[in-house]
């Protein structure tokens, strides 16, 4: 049978589902989030009854991080990549990362690297505005689902500020109350975003324009380090768009 396995979209549920597949020796042709499943004539959707299954035991922290980052990615085959990666993990244990002749290992590493790279870039490229002298607000539009990773960073860095970061594409926001952050749907919160913050924004743009050296101008290099897709939310680049 050509099984398409459905899961509820959460990381937890994905791991439990994969364990179910291993235990029952089911080889899926794909694993997809149930909301995304569009129906098919040749394939059978199947959502396992899995409440009695424990989560997969992944003892190695590094391995756990890799698959979690793959899960956060926008790669359309990410679930299958995780499935095959884990299948091999149970054969090779922590040696798995040496097996760079396996496609799933190279893919998992490349995808997780991409996610971690984007999270790193946005630690720098995220721009806050001070709203009503009350809280900081930033909008981002990342390819991958890195809002949680970014929130962990800012919860340390700006721990005595109230802040909100909105992922425009996924329509979710992270709200930080000087103690913890919560990620909720954008539609569950009303925000008054009147920007009262022009003074510092203007100064920043002055600084930004001044600091580049004319006789070294290299826009190609600028763009390759700071891809254009991020410019829309970076106040200093808006005039370049």
């Amino acid at each position: 049978m050509n099984y398409i396995i459905l899961y509820d979209g959460s990381f937890n549920n994905l791991l439990i589902t994969i364990k179910y597949l291993f235990t029952n020796n089911i080889k899926p042709i794909n694993i997809v989030k149930e909301d995304n499943f569009k129906g098919s004539l040749t394939e059978y959707p199947f959502k396992p009854e899995i409440s009695e299954f424990d989560k997969l035991n992944i003892l190695d922290k590094n391995i756990f991080k890799i698959i979690y980052y793959v899960y956060l990615s926008n790669n359309i085959n990410k679930e299958l990549v995780i499935y095959f990666f884990l299948l091999n993990y149970y054969v090779y244990k922590s040696d798995i990362l040496k097996h760079r002749n396996l496609k799933c290992v190279n893919m998992a590493l490349a995808i997780s690297h991409k996610v971690s790279r984007e999270a790193h870039l946005l630690k720098g490229f995220t721009r806050f505005k001070l709203i009503n002298n009350e809280y900081l607000y930033a909008k981002i539009k990342p390819d991958n689902d890195i809002l949680e990773l970014l929130s962990m960073h800012f919860a340390k860095r700006l721990k005595n500020e109230y802040w909100i970061i909105e992922d425009e594409g996924r329509k979710i926001v992270s709200i930080y109350n000087k103690d913890k952050f919560f990620i909720i749907d954008r539609c569950d919160i009303k925000l008054n975003l009147d920007n009262t913050d022009n003074v510092w924004e203007d100064l920043w743009i002055v600084f930004f324009k001044t600091i580049g050296i004319k006789s070294r101008e290299n826009k190609r290099c600028q763009m390759s380090f700071m891809p254009k897709k991020y410019w829309q939310n970076m106040i200093e680049m808006e005039s370049e768009l």
């Binding site: 790193h120 630690k123 720098g124 490229f125 340390k156 860095r157 700006l158 721990k159 005595n160 500020e161 930004f208 324009k209 600091i211 580049g212 050296i213 004319k214 070294r216 101008e217 290299n218 826009k219 190609r220 290099c221 600028q222 380090f225 700071m226 970076m234 200093e236 680049m237």
Partner: peptide, 27 residues
């Protein structure tokens, strides 16, 4: 540097916040 009750911390690998027109990192 850990944030010990005020504003800010430091990341070991450094973070670029923008890139100037000459392609150099603004940190």
């Amino acid at each position: 540097r850990k944030n010990t009750g005020c504003i800010g911390n430091a990341a070991i690998n450094g973070i670029c916040h923008s890139f100037a027109s000459d392609g150099r990192c603004i940190s």
